[in-house]
Design a protein around this nucleic acid. Structure first.
Lengths: 342, 342
DNA sequence: TTGAAAGCGGTACCAC
DNA sequence: GTGGTACCGCTTTCAA
C-alpha cells in the first residue's frame, strides 16, 4: 500500500493524504480523521526510500569504527555509547548505520558517505591525540560529533566526553590517601586521546604530592586480557612491586587479576586494584571490596547526548561547535587494600 | 555533482554515463574510460537515496536488538558477531542498520521496517526457546536469518549457530575426566535458546557417566558480574561445594572469580573454572592455567556467514531456508584444577 | 481546504 | 553504442 493507492481508496489526492498524515494545519479535521483511519486500516507506512529522496535527508546517522580499533567494538564503553545513542535516534525517527572501515581507505569512506548521502552526519569514535579526520570532515562540510576529544586539534569541533583525566586523578588520590606510594598504571594505547588524558590525571595526582611517576610502573598497550596480564605480571615481578594497580579497562583488569593470582598474591591483601570502565553493582550493596571507579552509565548518557547534539547541529549548523564534558560517575567502594609497605 | 551534471560535462546522456559506470557491456570502451575519468575528477558518487528508490532495494540489513536483551549489546559475543557481519556487508556494498527496540512494540517495529522498506532483511538476535518473531517475519514475508536457533520452532527458518550444546558437553566431560564430581553450572537465562542448549550439553555429559545433575549446583540468570558473583557465592557456601565451575560468560566469570576470592579460596587450587565466550590468547602460549573454552572467533565467523546467507536469500528467496552449525573453537588449556575431594 | 504537477537522482525499457 | 523517457513514491510549490 502506497500513498497513491491510499489516496485513491479515500477518493482524495495524494497531496491531501500526505498533508493529513504529516500533521499540516490546513487539513480539515474530519478529513484527517478519515485518512488516519484508512492508513491504519490498510497498514500504510510511508516508504522511507521515497521520503529520503524527496526530502534530501537520509534520516540516518553513521557510526564509523576504524578497523584498527576493532576490538573497540567489543569494548563495553563503545557498546554502552551505542546503546545510548540508539535511544535518541529511535525517539527521533533516525536510523543508526554502523560502518566498520579498514583504516587504509578511511578517507575514501568518509568522502563517499558524504557524496552518496547515506547518512546526514557522523559520530566519530576512538579519536587520537591528533586526528586527521577532523580536518577532513570539516573540509567536506560533513556534520559530526566526536565521542571523546582531540587534544591536539587545530580546529574547533563538537564533542561529548567523559572526564577521564579527573576520574583518574581522583582514583589516584584515593589510593594515595590510603597510603599507597607505588601505584601501577595499566593504560590503553596512549596515542588514543582518552588514554593520554587518563595518564595525565594519574601523573597530576602524583605530582601534587611531590611524587615522580616511575616509568616501570606505567604500561600502555591494547586493552586486552593478554596485555593486562603481561603488564601486571611484569610490574609485580619488580624488586619493588606496586601495592596497587590502576587499570584502564575491565578487560585488562581480568588479565591483571589473573597475573596477581598466578604470582600467589591475593587481591585486597597484597594488591589493591582500581578498575575504570566498570560497573559492579553488587559492590554497591556495601560488601567489602577493593576500590574501583565506574563510568559505564556515564558513557550511556554520553551516547544519548552526543546523538542529540548531532541532530541539533544538523537541524541548525550555526549551533556548532558544541561541547559537553560529563563527570565520570566515580564510585569508590569500601577498601580492603593492603597496608602499604614501608 | 550528480549524474545529470556529470553527463552534461561529458556531453553524453545520463543513460550512457550510468551504463558506463555500472559496467554495462554495450558501452564503448573509450567512452567508458572518459566517463570514469570524469567521475573521478569531479568526485562523483551516485546518490544512494536515488538508487534505493529507483531499484526498490534498500541495500541495507537490519540488526534488531530487543531492549530486554540490551546488556546483550555489551556482550562480546554480540559485538563479535556484528563485526563479522560488517565485513560481509562492506564487501557487498550493504549498510548495517542497528535498531534497538523496546520489546513492548516489537511487532510494530518489524512490520514498519518491512512496510517502510528501510532494510531488505533482518538478522534476528537473542532468540528464545520459542520465539514469536519467526511466525511474524515469515507471515509478512521478510527475509531473515537467526543468529542462534529456536528449539521449539514450528516453521522452517534460516539460522547460523555455534554448537553450544557440544561445547558444554565437551567442557563438562573434560572436568569429569579430571575427577570432578560436583560441577557448578552458572548459566544465562534459560528461556534464551543458547542457554538452554548449554545446560542440555552439561546434563548430557553428566548423564553419560550416570550422574544426576544437582539443582543446587545450577544457576540461571542474566550474564552480569553481579549474577555471577551471587551464583558462585551461593554454591561455594554449600555444605558440599562444587570443585569446579562452568560459567556461561566472561562477564559472569568475573563475578565468579571475585566470589572465589571473597571466600578465601584460590582458583586453580580449590576451584577450577571454565569460561565460555572467552578468548584469553595468553593462555595459548602454554602457561599453566585452568581450563576454558572459547568461541569468540567462531562467533565472528558466524557473523560473516549469517550476513552472507541473508544476502543470498535476498538474491534468491527460493534458496531459503538455509542452516549452518559451527563448532565452537574449543580450547582447553593445561589444567591446574584441584584434586577433587572424596 | 484541496488538487495538479514538478521535482528528488537515479534505473531501465524502448527506439534509433 | 547512445539517447529519450517513463517510472520509483514521496514532498512541496502554486493554483483553484
Amino acid at each position: 500500500m502506497n500513498l497513491k493507492e491510499l489516496a485513491r481508496k479515500l477518493d482524495l489526492s495524494p497531496t491531501t493524504v500526505s498533508r493529513a498524515l504529516n500533521g499540516y494545519p490546513e487539513v480539515n479535521e474530519e478529513t484527517r480523521a478519515r485518512v488516519a483511519a484508512a492508513a491504519r486500516r490498510y497498514n500504510y507506512a510511508p516508504n522511507s526510500r521515497a521520503i529520503r529522496l524527496a526530502t534530501g535527508k537520509a534520516m540516518a546517522i553513521g557510526h564509523v569504527i576504524p578497523i584498527a580499533a576493532r576490538h573497540e567494538i567489543v569494548n563495553p564503553v563503545f557498546a554502552d555509547f551505542i546503546a545510548g545513542a540508539g535511544e535518541t535516534y529511535s525517539r527521533s525517527g533516525y536510523d543508526m548505520v554502523l560502518t566498520v572501515v579498514p583504516d587504509m581507505d578511511e578517507e575514501r569512506v568518509y568522502r563517499e558517505l558524504k557524496a552518496r548521502g547515506t547518512v546526514d552526519g557522523i559520530i566519530l569514535h576512538a579519536p587520537r591525540l591528533q586526528d586527521a579526520r577532523l580536518a577532513l570532515l570539516t573540509e567536506i562540510g560533513f556534520p559530526f560529533v566526536v565521542h571523546g576529544r582531540v587534544t591536539e586539534a587545530t580546529l574547533p569541533y563538537s564533542w561529548v566526553d567523559v572526564n577521564n583525566r579527573r576520574a583518574f586523578l581522583r582514583a589516584t588520590e584515593f589510593l594515595l590517601d590510603l597510603g599507597h606510594r607505588r601505584i601501577g598504571l595499566i593504560n590503553g594505547l596512549e596515542f588514543m586521546d582518552f588514554a593520554f588524558r587518563r595518564r595525565s590525571g594519574f601523573e597530576q595526582a602524583l605530582a601534587a604530592r611531590g611524587l615522580t611517576p616511575d616509568p616501570a610502573l606505567m604500561a600502555s598497550d591494547e586493552m586486552t586480557e593478554t596485555a593486562g596480564y603481561r603488564a601486571a605480571s611484569r610490574m609485580l615481578g619488580l624488586a619493588a612491586p606496586p601495592t596497587a594497580l590502576l587499570v584502564s579497562s575491565m578487560i585488562s583488569a581480568i588479565g591483571a587479576r589473573r597475573a596477581i593470582q598466578d604470582r600467589g598474591l591475593t587481591l585486597g591483601r597484597d594488591v589493591s586494584v582500581i578498575i575504570h570502565d566498570d560497573e559492579l553493582s553488587y559492590l554497591r550493596n556495601g560488601e567489602a571490596v577493593p576500590i574501583y571507579t565506574a563510568t559505564r552509565s556515564s558513557v550511556r548518557e554520553a551516547g544519548r547526548l552526543a546523538a542529540q547534539m548531532l541532530l541539533d547541529i544538523i537541524a541548525d549548523p550555526a549551533s556548532a561547535p558544541q561541547q559537553r564534558l560529563l563527570e565520570a560517575e566515580l564510585i569508590i567502594g569500601q577498601s580492603t587494600g593492603p597496608a602499604p609497605q614501608a
